[in-house]
Design a binder for these strands. Structure first.
Lengths: 217, 217
DNA sequence: TTCGACAATCAGGCCTGCCTGTTTGTCGGA
DNA sequence: TCCGACAAACAGGCAGGCCTGATTGTCGAA
């Protein structure tokens, strides 16, 4: 008997469990939302475009995310997840020893110079005048910063527990955001990279002060 | 700068020349655009709202700015002008001598923490995905940075000509932008101010290196 | 094991409201 | 009188929420 694959659909796996189907379209929608955020900006994120790009129908979207606000709110989490995954993939390759801090800084900078940060930027700015979005963004940001400081010790070593070090690291992150903002504003990426090189020197010197000994680890 | 910064009043002056009328509604529209930018964000800037807030009619708006793009483009210039005026008003009060640099930094920070910067932020981020707006923003930014470096010597003294000093100042400005971004994201202003205090220390130390003598002037 | 009812998932069209550009008409100054 | 400044109504387009129907997976009962 033709038990399993009685009707082979032209496209994909003939039999999928409900959970698989659900998760597939769900993540397709969220990925499409983030992509639209990157490509068209926040006000360019329209359910029509998202649906079109995700390759699903309007009905599917409204089934999973009854309102656009919910779609975007979930996309915020999805984006933070994607950023975390993107970074986690690189953390393993970080050098140990004296070059560790430089490696972490460069990693952080790459993350800020990439498209996912631009997407986050869109959300931050839009959140200023959108209460519902602000709620979602704040919630995710809170958990993200918590994870950052949780992982900071893993990245930087025991100095991360130093209060002054944390302050300086926040300053460094602010500088990166400010430089990444120039990319949105349409500045030449080469020029921005140059400015980062200059800032990087300063940041390294600043953070080095907290290292009891450069050869401590 | 006599007859600006006011919404048009039909009742006040019974006798106005054409040029006065024109300039009045024009600046009323531009001010209203900037205000909408601050209050509703970029995608909340609708001609309907602008017209309503400016106290003029649709016809007036379309007469002065045939397309929304032109209105926004002019508003970009208008905004940069307002920011410049806002700063110029404070420059005169800056102290001279050793405290000069601190005064300038605080002035710059206040400018970044204010609503006009938030408006500029909206435009920068929106410009990433809007070619026409990007054109306008780039043009204005170019002339603004030119003016900044032109006035830098007046603000900081002869050190401003130092190449390394300029780099560090750019880094400092990036840090301010990155911190101001937190305000958009909905962080507590008090907390942001605290972070600025921490960054300020670092920036001052950084800039002081370029001063041949603290008592040079 | 097989079958059928039920629920979940998905597809697509309709409707309402808003935004923008256009056009026509009116008023007042030069 | 003539023209610039302004007022107001109109039309096209699009986004977003709602609804109906089709398809597919799930689960219980014979």
């Amino acid at each position: 008997m033709a038990s399993t694959d009685e009707t082979v659909r032209s496209t994909k796996k003939p039999r999928r469990t409900q959970g698989e189907r659900r998760e597939a379209t769900r993540s397709a929608l969220l990925d499409a939302t983030v992509d639209c955020l990157i490509e068209y900006g926040y006000n360019g994120v329209t359910t029509t475009r998202v649906v079109e790009r995700a390759g699903v129908s309007r009905g599917a979207q409204v089934h999973h995310f009854p309102t656009k606000g919910e779609l975007v709110a979930q996309a915020v989490q999805h984006l933070s997840h994607r950023r975390r995954v993107e970074m986690a993939a690189e953390i393993a390759d970080l050098p140990h020893g004296a070059k560790r801090v430089e490696g972490v800084l460069d990693l952080l900078w790459r993350s800020h110079a990439g498209p996912l940060f631009q997407a986050a930027l869109e959300l931050w700015v839009a959140a200023r005048t959108d209460a519902e979005l602000a709620e979602a963004v704040r919630g995710v940001d809170r958990q993200v910063t918590a994870q950052i400081w949780e992982g900071a010790e893993l990245l930087f070593g025991p100095v991360a527990r130093n209060r002054a070090f944390a302050e300086d690291l926040e300053t460094a992150l602010a500088t990166m955001r400010g430089l990444a903002l120039l990319l949105s504003a349409g500045n030449d990426p080469k020029a921005v990279e140059k400015r980062w090189k200059a800032a990087r020197k300063r940041i390294l010197a600043m953070l080095a002060e907290h290292d009891p000994l450069s050869s401590a680890n």
